[in-house]
Design a protein around this nucleic acid. Structure first.
Lengths: 206, 206
DNA sequence: GCGGTTTAATAACGATCGTTATGAAAATAA
DNA sequence: TTATTTTCATAACGATCGTTATTAAACCGC
């Protein structure tokens, strides 16, 4: 019973996602959000809660709908393919939409007021989750001989994430897709090779 | 003639620098700045202008006093040493002060409101300047045979900056110095070698 | 000491921040 | 139709934002 909702919750969430993506958590005002969603302020509150709750819903949606290349990449047969696919997926994501470049999980809150601290921590955790998934995948690759015995899965995951984060910063700064692809290619030059990948073995110490 | 200034301008600038470093441009309120500087609001305005002007002065100070490892690195004899020194310098800078980790030029403004757009552009330009200096240094290295003929100085500079930016994000997220050093080491694994560095030459294409 | 000048401190400015009463409009249940 | 419930829209809340009159105090040259 009761009156029906007149606006599309999914559309409103998408609109809020775009605003947060472009301006970050603190840079996006509630006026920006309501205007983009085409919804009055109390309607947004009753549907999603306050600004922080709305951002958390948006963040979950972001990972589900836009960072879907990560779970897809983890299923690829070799660690190198995983890394290459993640890099290419990130480049696509961070340069595809000209009006909101970069990565929401990075530029959402890197630094901010004390009020934004819980959101900042949430973003840190979300990125740590992705890094952990990569690390576990690389541990598996090492066990499978896909990575050499000398490889450090935790370091490779941290390094790959660093490149991804750096490219996100550069994408937000307006870097072209071509430039970022060159960066990603350079990052892969160093990638260690496993057995049967036709690459040089690590030099044995004399 | 006239009354003398009672507060130390340098100290006030340092205090503002720390606040901006920790909270970013928009996250730092004028109340934060005046409290940290121990100076009343109109005094800060009369000494430095408005918030944007103050931030620009702080940014210049930041590069002069904290990113001094970059000009020092550019003078090293080989491109690899340049890269290694810049990476180590960035790690030191972004992890040395526990209460303001990361890099001001990154977390100052990555994304924000329309009001912060000029400052965001200023940070983009400042980073581009550093990247250009690295690129020119690598071009010289290529001409000197320090980098192979196949090396792309622009790509190497963009890649190195990406790793630096990524490590800054990770430092702000609380990553340890040791982790970042492993990331930097991994980044250097891919570094191309020039003549006389005892490294393998690029494989000739059959 | 006195006029001219610069700074210091208090207080307030209009605007915007996130958030929420309040009452009208719409839909279901009786 | 009437009662009940939920949503919608207007408006306003207190707080904080960056910025600035305004006035008192400290210094210089005379």
């Amino acid at each position: 019973m009761g009156r029906h909702r007149e606006f599309d919750v999914e559309k409103a969430l998408d609109a809020a996602l775009c605003v947060f993506w472009r301006k970050g958590y603190e840079g996006a005002s509630y006026a920006d959000l309501t205007e983009a969603a085409g919804v009055e302020r109390p309607a947004l509150y009753s549907a999603f809660g306050n600004k922080e709750a709305l951002f958390r819903k948006v963040l979950a949606r972001y990972y589900e709908r836009y960072v879907d290349y990560l779970p897809a990449a983890l299923q690829l047969p070799t660690a190198r393919e995983v890394a290459a696919h993640v890099l290419q997926g990130a480049i696509d994501l961070t340069t595809r939409y000209p009006d909101h470049t970069g990565c929401l999980a990075i530029q959402g809150v890197l630094a901010g007021s004390d009020e934004a601290e819980p959101v900042r921590q949430a973003l840190i955790e979300s990125r740590a989750e992705g890094e952990a998934q990569l690390r576990e995948r690389f541990e598996r690759a090492k066990a499978e001989g896909d990575l050499p015995e000398t490889a450090r899965p935790d370091t490779l995951a941290a390094f790959l994430m660093a490149v991804l984060h750096g490219m996100a910063v550069q994408a937000k700064a307006g870097f072209s897709r071509e430039t970022l692809e060159a960066v990603a290619e350079q990052a892969l030059v160093t990638w260690p090779a496993g057995r049967g990948e036709g690459a040089l073995r690590p030099k044995p110490r004399p």
